[in-house]
Design a binder for these strands. Structure first.
Length: 797
RNA sequence: GCCGCGGUGGCGGAAUGGUAUACGCGACGGACUCAAAAUCCGUUUCUCGCAAGGGAUUGAGGGUUCGAGUCCCUCCCGCGGCACCA
């Protein structure tokens, strides 16, 4: 017999909504708990089965917390700016906002059909002018603080479509639409100086509870590296070249300098010399190489001599200055001191017959010692000759070199400043105006939001400007400062803008005076648990931490870190093990599962399918198993009786214990297994008391809220199960009178005995030896007897 | 190349150094049924054995331990991150 999932789902969803049971209270005296899942991009394809995985998990925690007496904020919204809506607009001529609104309605309906306990009264939408007004306001804060600046940055450019491309539109170096190889085109863009926060973003990771792999990825992405800058006077020219090295103690081996082709100093080095034309040709060639090609194994290191030498401050050596394609402009200073102790440098030196010097003797006669090992004893190294390389000595060398005026300690980062301009329509307009007299001027706050105007044509313009550049009525404006002729910025913000602060808006979603009141923020921040995909670890997570830190510095938010704890879920793949994709035809639609089996089946199945953090394949037959479990659970109502087997009572308290701890440890799959064990026990024993069953419903409700409430009502419960207290296990019920003990001989299981729980060791050993099968193996006195209380006896013979 | 995580039945997966394979799927046998579905009961790591019981088994090989899926070493495979990064 199968329960009417459709009727039950709708009934309880309607009642929850009407009662507003999941709405957070800003004026509650209860302890707050702010739980957050990443808000989705409302794509045209509708919800993916991956979405409910993390939503269910955090929903389970939210429901448990409410039952534990917390004032829980668990909100939902839409990260709705983005390329697909714009492309749809280009294709159909419809406005992206109508498409987006349709998608949002679909997503909302889908999420509501799964019974998540979101507080829908705080729904946010990044494309709503009432929302992006504040995104623009925050950008102006960055601008006013001097953290937003203009820089010439290369964009992806399709020479056939005459259009700038987002990174995701570049597939294997080619334009996604027409297959033309993508070029780089320099464009003046707004940048935000996230690198100014690099050290704090790194250091403050120690103050938050993130999964270790998340912390590690952020650390690697920030890529802090300590080292030293050396100054090199170029011979015959009034130019000083600054090189960066992370291995300063090895510097006595350095014999030549290498400069990145894009480095502006190159032109000055070769100007008017016989090397100029060769150098320029080399630079042109190097620029044409895509980043993809650079990282291929077959990439050949080559370079040209500039005809210049620079003086090594350490040794006074004349170091030939080369330009080489392996030097990167955006790491360190763009200039490298090269030596025999770097595999890549040696390869280059041998190719161009540049002399090399070693300062640490080889252990392998064929290969110089690598500087990366940072071990060995130095020779020919000035004051460090004869000394071994240790972390202390490295530090000492930096101090000494600096004291001599050779250079200074320097820290470099992998992290780059944030390119904040997009030449796109469907994003927040950057609220700046360019005045011929005053330069870039902020749009006054009382004129925000700068609303996206309606356009006819969503294509980027032929010179790579945003579609907004074609709208004269938008572009032409007056300078807010001098009233003179001015033009609006036509670039829009990246997707990451609106999502960098949405969690703050939830605290006070309808405020039209501020992005959120200080009191509301103080009440809710920081977020207790934030769950999201690993793919957002380096961009969204880092951007939003930075954004929050900036607002914190400006006094607008109460905590330096927005997320006290960050957790992550694994992806759901298709049954065939591949990624779900339209082109593979292996996509599972969550609506179908809800339609066929009900919301609770989808929820419980997604929790049961495997460890929450790991990638798992979808299994249609696994779904059926969960549905069978829920049918069995509902049928327990027929087994209600005045008495129950003690095994049922015990199982109940074990279940309470296990579910409570599993939810806290994100062990949702084993929690579901325990729910199943309980239901199986009741089935086996044939009866359960009403009281026990109603207690069980309180631990079932986070997982299967519709089924739990339906049963609750059938048993005469009032209100919602969610309004009950979270049960506490009776520890005395967890104890058994007797226990089974394993008996091993030489570590091999030979039998089991059942003994009283408080039986003395001597008797247990005696009983173990008396076991018929054990006796066969234990002849005479055992050499040693190991007794593990309550577990086993092991005889060593 | 460096770093991190993982490899357990036919499948998804459980196991604070202490009875490996919980829970689910699938499969097989049975009950109910005119029949099927649903449901219920039973079996199900492999292997030898009528049975009692034995042997093997957590990617491969070593080690520590009374005892290792779990700890250590070497290697193989998969996933993820970083990477001509000075």
């Amino acid at each position: 017999m199968s329960y009417d999932h459709k009727g039950i789902d709708e009934k309880w969803q309607k009642r929850w909504m009407e009662a507003g049971v999941f709405n957070a209270k800003n004026d509650s005296l209860k302890e707050k708990c702010y739980l957050l899942v990443e808000f989705p991009y409302p794509s045209g394809a509708g919800l993916h089965v991956g979405h409910p995985r993390s939503y269910t998990a955090i929903d389970i925690i939210a429901r448990k917390r409410r039952m534990e007496g917390k004032n829980v904020l668990f909100p939902m919204g839409w990260d709705a700016f983005g390329l697909p809506a714009e492309n749809y607009a280009i294709k159909t001529g419809n406005h992206p906002s109508t498409f987006t609104q349709t998608n949002i309605d679909t997503f909302r309906r889908q999420l509501q059909s799964m019974g998540f306990s979101f507080d829908w009264s705080r729904e946010v939408n990044t494309t709503d002018p009432a929302y992006y007004k504040w995104t623009q306001w925050m950008f102006l804060e960055f601008f006013k603080a001097g953290l937003a600046y203009k820089a010439e940055i290369a964009i992806n450019w399709c020479p056939k479509d005459l259009c700038g491309l987002a990174n995701e539109e570049v597939v294997a170096g080619k334009c996604e639409r027409c297959g033309t190889p993508v070029e780089k085109k320099l464009k003046s863009q707004w940048m935000i100086a996230i690198t100014k926060y690099a050290d704090r973003l790194l250091a403050d990771l120690d103050t938050v509870n993130y999964l270790p792999k998340i912390k590690k990825q952020q650390e690697e992405w920030i890529g802090r590296k300590e080292g030293m800058i050396f100054h090199h006077q170029v011979k015959d020219l009034d130019i000083v070249l600054d090189s960066f090295t992370a291995y300063p103690i090895w510097s006595y081996a350095d014999t030549f300098l290498v400069i990145a082709p894009e480095h502006p100093v190159v032109a000055d080095l070769v100007a008017g010399t016989e090397y100029e034309s060769v150098t320029n040709a080399f630079i042109e060639e190097a620029k044409a190489i895509s980043d993809d090609a650079r990282t291929e194994d077959s990439f050949e290191k080559n370079g040209v001599f500039t005809g210049r030498v620079a003086i090594d401050p350490l040794t006074g050596r004349e170091m030939p200055v080369w330009i080489a394609n392996f030097a990167l402009m955006n790491f360190g200073t763009g200039i490298i001191r090269c030596s025999a102790h770097d595999e890549r440098d040696v390869e280059f030196a041998l190719k161009y017959q540049i002399p090399i010097v070693e300062v640490v003797d080889r252990t392998n006669p064929d290969v110089p010692v690598s500087a990366h090992s940072n071990t060995g004893v130095l020779k020919d190294s000035g004051p460090f000759t004869g000394k071994s390389i240790t972390p202390e000595r490295i530090e000492e060398s930096i101090v000494w070199f600096a004291a001599q005026g050779f250079g200074e300690k320097h820290v470099t980062y992998r992290l780059r400043d944030w390119v904040f301009s997009r030449q796109r329509y469907w994003g927040e307009p950057i609220p700046l105006v360019h005045c011929e007299k005053d330069g870039w001027v902020a749009v006054p706050v009382d004129q925000l939001p700068v609303v996206l105007p309606n356009v006819e044509n969503y294509q980027p313009t032929e010179n790579g400007e945003s579609p907004l550049a074609n709208i004269e009525s938008f572009v032409n404006t007056k300078c807010p400062q001098c009233g003179g002729v001015a033009r609006r910025e036509t670039d829009t913000m990246p997707n990451w803008a609106g999502s960098s602060w949405y969690f703050l808006r939830y605290a006070d979603a309808h405020n039209d005076k501020e992005f959120a009141s200080k009191e509301a923020l103080k009440q809710w921040m920081p977020i207790d648990i934030y769950n999201g995909g690993m793919e957002h670890t380096t961009l969204h997570l880092l951007y939003s931490r930075f954004w929050n830190k900036f607002l914190f510095d400006r006094g607008y938010v109460p905590t330096s870190e927005p997320y006290a704890r960050r957790h992550s879920h694994g992806m759901i793949n298709a049954e065939d093990g591949r990624k779900m994709s339209k082109s593979w035809g292996n996509v599972v639609n969550p609506d179908e599962i809800v339609g066929q089996h009900g919301a609770d089946t989808l929820r419980v199945y997604e929790m049961f399918m495997g460890p929450f953090e790991e990638m798992v394949p979808w299994s249609t037959s696994g779904v059926i198993g969960v549905r069978r479990f829920l049918d069995k659970a509902i049928r327990m109502v027929e087994k209600v009786s005045d008495t129950e087997d003690v095994a049922v009572t015990k199982a109940l308290h074990q279940t309470i214990t296990k579910i409570s701890s599993d939810i806290e440890g994100f062990g949702f799959n084993t929690a579901v297994a325990q729910l199943m064990i309980f239901v199986n026990t009741v089935q086996e024993k044939g009866s359960i008391t009403k009281e026990s069953l109603m207690t069980f419903l309180r631990v079932l409700v986070p997982f299967a809220p519709h089924v739990a409430n339906e049963l609750w009502e059938k048993l005469g419960g009032t209100g919602f199960v969610e309004e009950q207290e979270w049960p506490v296990a009776d520890v005395s019920m967890l104890k058994n009178d007797s226990i089974e003990i394993a008996v091993q001989v030489n570590g091999k299981l030979r039998g089991t005995i059942v003994v009283a729980v408080d039986e003395v060791e001597e008797t247990i050993v005696k009983m173990a030896r008396a076991d018929e099968n054990v006796a066969k193996y234990v002849i005479g006195e055992p050499k040693k007897t190991i007794v593990v209380k309550g577990k086993l006896v092991n005889f060593v013979v």
